[in-house]
Design a protein around this nucleic acid. Structure first.
Ligand code: SF4
Ligand code: SF4
Lengths: 137, 137
DNA sequence: GTTAATTACTACTTTAAGGTAGTATTAAAT
DNA sequence: ATTTAATACTACCTTAAAGTAGTAATTAAC
């Protein structure tokens, strides 16, 4: 009942980049060291973020990565989408989802409220909101 | 962001058993057919439920499984506990959880509310609440 | 132009969850 | 007593996520 490792890494990576005030360009080696994420795995994830248009990569010497948009314009939900980790509207808590409105279990309606809150949270929280509090994020 | 397959199966199995009015004893073969859960996997899960004191097994010919308590006394949360799929108090949405009250991200407080609702739901929903609506559960 | 530092690509290995096979054990039916 | 139908146990196989290795491509610095 939590986000995939990959999504967690992606969020931390982007949050860290959003937080870096000085140089907006950062390379994989430094990011990997700063966040304690395996270098090779990090570059693999980053390549996906580049393809998803959340990050710009600059290849070659003096290259690196930088956010493609303002931190306030990149939502946590956008990141989750890239790794198919979003919360779908029809998603059942139990993961069963065979049921419909006609024959619903007691959890069905109870699940609506927390689901809505989660969707809202992911939809409306930007990188800016989660970065830069000195957290280990 | 959902329960493990094993937990889902376990919930469906127990809910089905709670729903069976006629004979309280049911065997693995019938359960497996009714719920379309692989027989061998089902028995593996059931053995864990027996060890966890949620189910009583009767071995030998004419044997089978039956709930150890009233359906209204077995909570969804009890089942999740068996498979380490519970929602912990300290659990972070992002699964990071390095942070503390001093330096929390924007999600930290937003996560409280849905988390509480989920915990309450799992704690207070019994098998009786989710069984017997004609659902495919 | 050569070198050095960087990202991108391809392919592999490891780990844990999910699932399967075979056999031992149990106990009612006969 | 033997047979049969059931659960329990042990060990293995499969799959997808997580992680690793090596090399190609790119580009600034020299
Ligand atoms: S009725 Fe219950 S099991 Fe069916 S989709 Fe709704 S929450 Fe899931
Ligand atoms: S501050 Fe954010 S990242 Fe840290 S534990 Fe709370 S929700 Fe998780």
């Amino acid at each position: 009942m939590q986000l995939s490792n990959t999504s967690q890494y992606a969020i931390r990576m982007l949050a860290y980049m959003a937080d870096k005030k000085d140089s907006s360009l950062i390379n994989a080696t430094k990011l990997s060291e700063a966040l304690q994420i395996p270098y090779k795995f990090l570059t693999k994830i980053m390549t996906e973020l580049v393809k998803a248009d959340l990050v710009v990569s600059i290849r070659g010497r003096e290259g690196g990565y930088t956010l493609k948009k303002n931190a306030s314009d990149i939502m946590v939900g956008d990141i989750l989408k890239v790794f198919n980790d979003s919360m779908q509207d029809e998603q059942c808590v139990l993961g069963i989802g065979f049921c419909n409105g006609m024959c619903k279990c007691a959890l069905h309606d109870q699940w609506m409220k927390p689901k809505r809150l989660l969707q809202k949270m992911f939809r409306e929280s930007s990188l800016e909101d989660i970065a830069g509090r000195g957290c280990k994020i």
